[in-house]
């Protein structure tokens, strides 16, 4: 079947009804390893991608259910909001080990796309399910607010 990943139609070896999650199609078949495997049970957010703009846990989403949907991974993030998030992440040096950050960045992008000026509380509410073992939460919060300013100035 075909999936649309980062704007391109990609043929993948997935049969209808197959339960293999999108995460492993991305990582193992397509070598898009920027999307990370954290918990495998939708509990940590490391595997977050965007499906039609919505943050989605790729570790529990069968690839076969995504025909006709548009998947965006960290490798293909190119919206103004996404670029602003990456710029803010750079300015504030958010990352430490980095394992969760692709998911954090995509979750932040989805938030900013829906809410151009989130408050710190909005960030907390929206992103509380994206866990960071290094505890970079404070910088994440500040960077999302900074990213909203960057989008606003463009």
């Amino acid at each position: 079947m075909n999936l649309t990943i980062n704007g391109e139609a990609v043929e993948v070896n997935v049969a209808p009804g197959d339960d293999r999650p999108l995460l492993w199609v991305l990582r193992e078949d397509l070598a898009l390893t920027g999307t990370k495997f954290g918990c495998g049970v939708s509990a940590c957010g490391a595997c977050t991608v965007l499906v039609d703009g919505q943050p989605t846990r790729s570790c529990v989403t069968p690839a076969a259910t995504l025909e006709g949907r548009s998947v965006t991974t960290i490798e293909g993030l190119d919206t103004p909001q996404g670029k602003a998030v990456q710029q803010a992440w750079t300015e504030l040096d958010v990352v430490q080990c980095g394992w969760c950050q692709s998911g954090q960045i995509l979750a932040a992008t989805a938030l900013l796309t829906q809410n151009a000026s989130p408050t710190e509380d909005d960030v907390n509410t929206s992103m509380s399910a994206n866990i960071c073992r290094c505890a970079t939460y404070d910088r994440i919060r500040n960077a999302v607010v900074r990213a909203s300013q960057l989008v606003g100035t463009e």
Binding site: T33, T73, Q86, W89, T90, V94, V95, G98, Q101
Partner: peptide
């Protein structure tokens, strides 16, 4: 290590 860790290339 920031640049590579925010675009998936790390």
């Amino acid at each position: 290590d920031t640049a590579a860790k925010i675009n998936g290339s790390a």
